[in-house]
Amino acid sequence: MTERSRIRVGVNGYGVIGKRVADAVAAQDDMVLSGVADITADWRLKMAARKDYALYASTEDRAAPMREAGFDLNGTLDDLLGAVDVIVDCTPKKVAAKNVEIYRQKDLRFILQGGEKHEVTGHSFVAEANYESAIDRKCTRVVSCNTTSTVRTLTALKRAGLLRRARGTLLRRATDPWESHLGGIMNTLVPEPEIPSHQGPDAQSVDPELDVVTMAVKVPETLAHLHYWSVQLTREASKAELLDAFRASSRIALIEIGDGLSAINAVKEMMADLGRPHDNLYEVALWADMLMVQGDELFYAYIVDNQAIVIPETIDAIRALTGREHDAARSIAATNRALGIGMVADSLGRG
């Protein structure tokens, strides 16, 4: 594929999600990273410069300070927007909603992250659940990490004809690891003040048919989130049948405590050993040997890497919005191939 025929993608905001989106775009055969925009002038943007990513200032007033800090800018966000087919906004919560006005004025396709409200785009995205409904749209919102995992796992059960309703408890990490010195919690647990927590209604923005209720509590750790789920099935089913339902999703990795993967830190260490950039766990890591079924009730637990799980969804959303790929399965397969999704099962001998 020639560079001219590739999808031109820009990333606005080079933080925890933005840098991972940029790397993932650069890894795709059918996309080209046109550049990244930010307002920082510290080590984070220096890492982008080391990768020879084209750099832009997200706002006019930050261009001079960034140049004074030694960055060779290609211009401002306005210049980047003139050179892309899709802009992926990875700026902090509520900033993106303001940027939407700019994107709409320029008649650009754009993708927001889960920190923004569903109403801003009118569409929320998880590739395995509703890829087709995003084809040729002007915009979509890739839902949050916890919502993505919820939709992935419940969609797997739904497609197998097994899902009646689901109730989940989420143990949410306190903050991103790189910011743990700035805040977070210590020696306490902080419950979300409302039931359901926002993830359940958010999942229904992707699939309104889901009967799901979530509860959440913030815990004093930063590696990943942990989910516990209780699901009423449409009928009695065996453990083997349920594992096959989850296995049908390429973005659910079945792991086992028996392999020594008994805690979040061990799973993240495995990602490092697999050579994943930033130790990324793109999949939902679901404990197969912990899963239990009693009649028509299912109980299971899994890990969510909030820095990584939405990255493949964002890549698929790019293809859907541009209409370059109308088949969800082909897009998902291409993204998986580029990001090495499937390595977990292969490395454990369960490919």
Results as ranks from 00 to 15, higher is better:
I135Y: 10
Y103G: 10
G82E: 14
R152G: 01
D107G: 05
L81H: 01
E269T: 03
L243K: 02
L171M: 12
G15K: 08
D78C: 03
H278S: 03
E241W: 07
A266V: 11
L261Y: 01
G161M: 06
L112H: 08
D89P: 10
V21Y: 03
T150Q: 06
E241N: 08
T121F: 07
Q232A: 11
A26V: 09
G200I: 08
N130Y: 11
T147S: 12
I195R: 12
R324G: 08
V304C: 13
A329S: 15
M66R: 02
A166Y: 03
D61S: 13
S331M: 05
T59D: 11
K98C: 06
L108W: 02
E236T: 14
K51G: 08
R20T: 09
V284K: 01
N336D: 15
T121K: 11
M271K: 00
L80H: 06
T155H: 02
W178D: 13
L154D: 01
L348Y: 04
E325V: 10
I17N: 00
E236F: 05
D29W: 08
A48H: 05
L339Y: 01
S144L: 02
T40I: 13
I332W: 03
N99G: 15
E60N: 04
V213M: 07
I39P: 01
R165I: 02
D42K: 07
E236D: 15
M47Y: 09
A37N: 09
T147A: 15
A288Q: 03
D273P: 00
L73N: 10
F110L: 06
I315R: 02
P312H: 07
M47T: 15
E256I: 06
A96D: 02
F110S: 01
V25G: 02
G184H: 09
Y302V: 03
T214I: 09
K117G: 06
L233S: 10
F299K: 05
A345Y: 07
F246E: 03
A97M: 08
A22R: 04
N74E: 15
I315T: 02
Q199G: 00
A26M: 09
H227T: 08
Y53I: 06
S250C: 03
A320C: 08
A22W: 04
R276F: 00
G200C: 12
I17T: 01
H198W: 12
M66W: 06
L348E: 04
I255F: 04
G323R: 07
A174E: 11
T175E: 11
A263Y: 12
H326I: 02
Y282D: 00
T140L: 11
P312Q: 10
I111N: 07
L33A: 12
V36A: 05
V21W: 00
L112C: 11
T169E: 11
H181Q: 10
G184F: 08
M270E: 01
E297A: 13
P277D: 04
A160P: 01
K268G: 00
M47H: 11
G70E: 07
A338P: 10
A237M: 09
R247L: 06
D346Y: 05
N99D: 15
K239A: 10
I135T: 08
A216L: 12
D259S: 10
R337L: 13
G75I: 06
L291G: 03
L189S: 14
P208I: 12
G183P: 11
A69W: 04
